[in-house]
Amino acid sequence: MNSNINNRAWRKSRVSNGNQACVEVAPLDDTTGVRDTEARRRGHIEITPTSWSTLLETLKG
């Protein structure tokens, strides 16, 4: 996992609601980081570029 993860440019969707019920994403060295906005201290997962593209295309449906 990448060091200094909290110093990365984490962002959440513009359409997220005010109660922080969303996920955040950040570009990492060779992956995309994904974490729960409400539980940042629990860590994150890292997704490869191919898997990230597949996930986004699936969600767009």
Rank of each mutant, 00 (worst) to 15 (best):
S53K: 03
T54G: 03
D36I: 02
N6E: 15
L59R: 03
L55Q: 01
E24A: 06
L28G: 08
E46K: 09
Q20M: 09
S16L: 03
V25Y: 09
Q20G: 05
S13W: 05
D29K: 09
T48C: 00
N4L: 13
R41D: 15
R41T: 13
T48F: 01
V25K: 05
W52H: 04
N6W: 05
N4I: 08
R41N: 14
E24K: 00
I45N: 02
S51Y: 03
M1I: 04
N17V: 00
V15D: 10
A39D: 12
I47E: 01
N4S: 11
R42S: 11
G33E: 01
T48E: 02
E24T: 01
A21H: 10
I45M: 13
M1V: 06
L59Y: 10
A21W: 07
K60C: 08
A21D: 15
H44K: 04
K60V: 12
N6L: 14
M1F: 06
L56Q: 09
T37W: 02
H44V: 03
N6S: 13
T37L: 00
G18M: 13
R41C: 08
C22V: 05
S3R: 14
R40M: 09
P27K: 08
S53G: 13
G33T: 04
S16C: 12
R35Y: 07
D29G: 09
R40G: 02
N4A: 11
N6Y: 10
S16E: 13
L55I: 12
G61S: 13
H44I: 02
K12T: 09
L56N: 07
G33Q: 07
T32M: 13
N19V: 00
G33C: 06
P49M: 03
Q20I: 01
T48S: 07
G61W: 13
D30M: 03
P27N: 09
T48K: 00
S16P: 04
S51I: 12
V34I: 15
S3W: 11
G43D: 06
P49Q: 02
D30T: 07
G18N: 12
R8G: 02
P27R: 08
T50L: 12
I45H: 06
T32A: 02
M1Y: 04
N19D: 15
R14N: 13
N7E: 15
L55R: 00
E46I: 03
R11L: 15
N6F: 10
T32S: 00
A9E: 14
V15I: 07
H44M: 11
N2V: 14
T37P: 00
V23E: 01
R40W: 01
A39H: 14
R40Q: 14
